[in-house]
């Protein structure tokens, strides 16, 4: 087990093979070797770490290892997997239809939390597991990018294109459809 300490000084106990999905933590553990000492994560708050690593009420057929990050004093069991575990592409493919629903719940966070999660995922070096969720369209089998309107809504981004840019975009889309 590995003990993580967040920026707001909360301790999280978790199994080594789970936290090692974060390249940052994996490198740390390799460099310092076996240790009982807690690993501080000064750039990650407890609320973000919980969100990144704790399951929500999701689809039930997903692999249940029953092991994921939990606070040191509590052991929580849930049938769904935290994002930190979502490593295998094969597994991801198998679960394509579930991910959409899971994502919908997972991304239902306020803007502040959303950006913190993205930055924390980058800091922990699990961005390949986490960041792309935001821009990908979970409803598509191949998980292509979401339509611009959806991305704007998700990130609260204003469409600030000039009429000239809009005209250019229209042409681009005509070409993309025609090619």
């Amino acid at each position: 087990m590995v003990l993580l300490v967040t920026s707001d000084n909360e301790q999280f106990q978790t199994e080594k093979d789970i936290v090692e999905r974060s390249v940052l933590i994996k490198n740390m553990l390799e460099d310092v070797g076996e240790s009982d000492q807690p690993i501080p994560l000064p750039n990650v708050s407890s609320s973000v770490l919980k969100k990144v690593t704790q399951p929500s009420t999701g689809p039930t057929e997903i692999d249940v290892r029953g092991r994921y990050l939990s606070t040191a004093s509590t052991t929580v069991e849930s049938p769904s997997r935290p994002p930190i575990l979502e490593q295998s592409q094969d597994e991801t493919r198998k679960r394509t239809t579930d991910i959409s629903e899971w994502d919908q719940k997972f991304i239902t966070v306020d803007q502040e939390m959303l950006f913190e999660i993205i930055l924390a995922a980058n800091y922990l070096d699990i961005k390949s597991l986490l960041c792309r969720r935001w821009l990908q369209d979970g409803s598509q089998h191949d998980q292509g990018a979401r339509p611009p309107e959806e991305i704007r809504k998700l990130f609260n981004i204003v469409n600030d294109f000039t009429p000239e840019e809009e005209a250019q975009i229209k042409k681009e889309n005509e070409w993309a459809e025609d090619r």
Partner: peptide, 11 residues
């Protein structure tokens, strides 16, 4: 389509 969608979100 993917790169166009992303490039068409905002300036």
């Amino acid at each position: 389509e993917g790169v166009f969608r992303i490039s068409q979100v905002c300036s």
